[in-house]
């Protein structure tokens, strides 16, 4: 997994690519989210467009990031969820806990609409 990052309108956008399967690569995503929280960046979008697939390790990182951000009055939202990941979110019922959007701009915009930090 590779990870790139940008910012739009005060919202941090993380773009992992490849496979999120565990091991030291996946830990980079977890550490990045915690680094953002530490730096006071509490509005985060994960752009999943370039993620081939993830296993439960990847799902766990997303859940952990989301709960940490929500505990700090922020949020983690998903954008461009691929068919394979959508299917995993559905069978694990995690689709009910994440906010997911069709595009990054839609996800970024949702933070202004909701008024969260």
């Amino acid at each position: 997994m590779q990870l790139s990052e940008r910012e739009d309108n005060g919202v941090a956008i993380l773009m992992p690519s490849g496979k999120i399967m565990g091991g030291p690569d996946a830990a980079i995503l977890r550490e990045k989210i915690h680094e953002l929280v530490k730096g006071g960046k509490l509005q985060v979008v994960i752009d999943l467009a370039k993620v081939d697939w993830m296993n439960s390790n990847g799902l766990g990182i997303l859940i952990s990031g989301m709960t940490t951000l929500r505990d700090n009055n922020g949020d983690l939202k998903l954008a461009n969820v691929t068919e394979k990941i959508q299917s995993l979110l559905t069978i694990t019922k995690l689709i009910t806990v994440f906010e997911a959007y069709d595009s990054v701009p839609d996800a970024v915009q949702s933070f202004s609409a909701s008024g969260s930090n």
Partner: peptide, 15 residues
């Protein structure tokens, strides 16, 4: 258990 970070692996494999 829905917000637990771990514990989904076996369920996913079975699915």
């Amino acid at each position: 258990n829905l917000l637990r970070e771990v514990g989904r692996g076996i369920f996913i494999v079975r699915s």
